[in-house]
Structure formats: structure tokens, C-alpha cells
């Protein structure tokens, strides 16, 4: 089972649409202490955001009848926050085509995207739909605090950079 998965992984390429990183609008994102078993849009602005309360102890909200306490976490320097969406290559090409026709312009990126020989129809593209430099971190009943896993995770990129950097020869 696993090996067949790997095979498809090897065949598939994912292309980052780098232009989307520049014009991704800032968004408010929330990290919840639970997993919702679906991927898709949710009416956060109607159900969640208006229910957030500022209490003396910090932020408070409830989700599915359970209390969450939260705080704002800044994305550390050297790391950038993006909301990424994956598209099938074919979809992206069609979208680019439409945009191109509408504007009557040919962007460098678009020209590149069509002439790029390495890209095939079943390749996928990943692009940013939003960016963030801080996010709301929610804990179940208690504020996640300095020991939160995600805070630790965010220290990894800088550590990784340090340990992989060339050691200067003395």
C-alpha cells in the first residue's frame, strides 16, 4: 500500500506559484486544539469571530460547546505565514488563461507557466490565498502558554538553518 503511494509521490510535482506570495492579503487565522474532519470553507466570521471575548485572563471563545482560551502568537522573524491552497495543474492553467484573456496582458509568470516543459497536466500547483504575521492559538480550557507545541515548532526553522549552515574554517 505504502509503496504505491510513494510511486505516485515521485511522479507528481508540486509547483509553487511564487507570485501569489507577494499579493496574499493579510488574514486572521486560528489554531484550534482539535481536528475538524473536513477540509473546506467555514463561516468563521459569522460563528467564531463574534463569539470571542476579552476576559481578564485572556481571550475566550467556545467551539462545539467546549471552552477555548487563547492568545495571539507572533510568527517569529525569519518565518512567514501563508494560507496555501493546492490546485490541480489543469485548473490553474485554465484560470490563467481566463485571466489572460480578460486583461489582454501576458505576465511573465503566465508565459513561463505555459512554456515550462517540466510541468504536466497532472502536476499540482500550490499558491497562497492569504498571509499572516500572527495567529490566534487556542487551548482547550487553558491558555496554551509558552510550552505550546507550535511555539516550539516555530523555533525549528532557525535552528535548522543554523545547523545546516557552513561552519567557517578557522
Amino acid at each position: 500500500m505504502e509503496s504505491s503511494d510513494e510511486e505516485t509521490t515521485e511522479k507528481q510535482r508540486i509547483h509553487l506559484r511564487s507570485a501569489t506570495l507577494c499579493d496574499a492579503a493579510p488574514a486572521i487565522v486560528h489554531l484550534l486544539p482539535c481536528e475538524v474532519l473536513v477540509n473546506g470553507p467555514a463561516p468563521v466570521e459569522r460563528f467564531f469571530t463574534p463569539a470571542i471575548r476579552q476576559r481578564p485572563s485572556g481571550l475566550e471563545v467556545s467551539f462545539r460547546g467546549r471552552i477555548l482560551r487563547g492568545e495571539e502568537v507572533a510568527v517569529p522573524p525569519g518565518v512567514a505565514g501563508y494560507v496555501m491552497v493546492m490546485n490541480e495543474k489543469a485548473e490553474v492553467l485554465a484560470e490563467l488563461e481566463r485571466r489572460h484573456k480578460r486583461r489582454g496582458l501576458e505576465h511573465e509568470e503566465e508565459a513561463q507557466a505555459r512554456s515550462e516543459p517540466l510541468e504536466r497536466d497532472f502536476d499540482r500547483c500550490i499558491g497562497a490565498t492569504a498571509s499572516f504575521d500572527h495567529f490566534h492559538l487556542w487551548g482547550l480550557e487553558t491558555i496554551p502558554g509558552p510550552d505550546a507545541k507550535v511555539r516550539g515548532a516555530l523555533t525549528w526553522p532557525n535552528l535548522a538553518a543554523a545547523i545546516h549552515a557552513q561552519v567557517p574554517e578557522d
Binding site: 475538524v36 463561516p43 460563528f47 467546549r66
Partner: peptide, 13 residues
């Protein structure tokens, strides 16, 4: 609501 369940007017418990 598929993700949020109900409004807070409802007792989820």
C-alpha cells in the same frame, strides 16, 4: 452548521 455545530443559544451538552 457543519463545522461550528449550533449557535450558542443551543446547549451542546
Amino acid at each position: 452548521e457543519p463545522v461550528f455545530g449550533f449557535p450558542q443559544f443551543v446547549r451542546f451538552s
